[in-house]
Design a protein around this nucleic acid. Structure first.
Lengths: 133, 133
DNA sequence: GCTTACTTGCGAATGAGTCGCAACTTTAGA
DNA sequence: TCTAAAGTTGCGACTCATTCGCAAGTAAGC
């Protein structure tokens, strides 16, 4: 566990938003001297260890990938095509679905990622209002 | 609707595997003269129209992205970290989860993507056998 | 057939991510 | 504490997917 790795994990843990590699790198460089390559290598490592998850959030902003620290709670993401907002949802049904798949398919689940793209409540309302005019 | 677009859709429709941009491009070039840029532009277009889905299959093979034509049936993907096999699963529970989210979060679902990484039945068995030795 | 709007191919540019290697840290053992 | 081995980092160069601008080509409606 080196200084570089500690700082990266710290940033990921504390960040409430989802960071892409570049942003993570920039933030880390404000704190210590760290190279791009190290950031990528560390992300790869943390991913393998299961400490972080990689997302793409329905490619709302191009082909970019995002990372988030794994907390105890399992959640999934809603991405609004209208306003771009990302919402995290915790719902027991997601857990049940995973268990269900494990059982029915004989699959040992390590990581599950559910991402849903569409329109949030606010944007749907907006849209309806507009089309009424 | 140009020749290029027709060919690309045709390949995606017919392919049973998941194609990345490069492979799709290579296959298309066997049939007609078509440029890389056109392939990317068309993929973007088809994605927006909701005719294809973009997947990353848990980054089993690096940061590559895959595309598949949208069929009527909704399914999700299991990616085996052991043997690399991708399995498609159709399960009513997935549909129910989407409806549930739509209702509870007031979210208008357009696209939902569920990808699960772990170990398939065969690889799990193999692993157990090995660790017994 | 003609015109307008859209698409394509090309070549160049961008930029994320990777690699090899020498220098530096960490760790554990003497 | 000192030392050696193993693992990690920074650097610079490199690869390669993806994007862009623009001129030429094509589709669709009149």
């Amino acid at each position: 566990m080196t200084r570089q790795r500690r700082v990266l994990l710290e940033i990921l843990d504390q960040s409430d938003a989802h960071l892409d590699a570049r942003t993570l790198c920039e933030r880390a460089q404000k704190k210590i001297d760290i190279d791009r390559a190290t950031v990528y290598r560390t992300l790869e490592l943390l991913k393998q260890k299961g400490l972080i998850d990689e997302l793409d959030l329905m490619h709302l902003h191009g082909e970019m990938h995002y990372f988030e620290a794994r907390t105890g709670s399992e959640h999934f993401h809603l991405a609004c095509y209208g306003c771009g907002k990302i919402t995290e949802v915790e719902d027991g049904m997601f857990e049940r679905l995973k268990k269900h798949v494990a059982l029915h398919e004989g699959f040992k689940v390590q990581t599950a990622r559910l991402e849903i793209g569409g329109y949030c409540r606010a944007c749907t309302a907006q849209h309806k209002k507009k089309s009424r005019v």
